[in-house]
Design a protein around this nucleic acid. Structure first.
Length: 122
DNA sequence: TTTGTGACATGAT
DNA sequence: AATCATGCCACAA
């Protein structure tokens, strides 16, 4: 027990920390890129958070679709799979505005100690 | 090593 | 509301 620290602290590279956070987002909830960067120990590095997800290329079991921008919109439209991301979120209960926005104030999720980190997804 | 790029964020215009 | 400009920093060439 000595080695590991308490609640979701930084470990490994920025990339690892971001992926670990994304893996913990519950279904039907979302996090923003800036939020990920902040919790990963790099406030303001929202672009890098997005870059990390880009390298995944929709890879694996990681719920990448639960990461959206600060406007409450998916940032993947220009990449071509924005529609798919919205669809995946809708399947989890997230509703989008006519202008493609969701209620961030209600859906944005923040990690808590009581949440069990699903290492399975890592 | 330098340069350019980018699934962003924020403020100004 | 939409657009522009700047900051941010990891990563590829």
């Amino acid at each position: 027990m000595a080695s590991e620290a308490g609640a979701g602290e930084a470990q490994g590279t920025f990339r690892e920390r971001v992926l670990a956070l994304v893996a913990r987002i519950p279904p039907g909830r979302v996090m923003t890129y800036g939020q990920l960067a902040l919790l990963a120990g790099q406030p303001g590095a929202a672009r890098q958070a997005g870059y990390v997800l880009n390298t995944l290329a929709g890879g694996g079991e990681l719920p990448w679709q639960r990461v959206i921008n600060a406007q409450g919109r998916v940032s993947t439209h220009k990449l071509g799979f924005g529609d798919m991301q919205e669809r995946l979120l809708e399947a989890e209960g997230v509703t989008f505005d006519a202008s493609g926005r969701c209620d961030l104030a209600r859906l944005q999720w923040w990690p808590a100690e009581e949440d069990a980190p699903p290492e399975r997804l890592l």
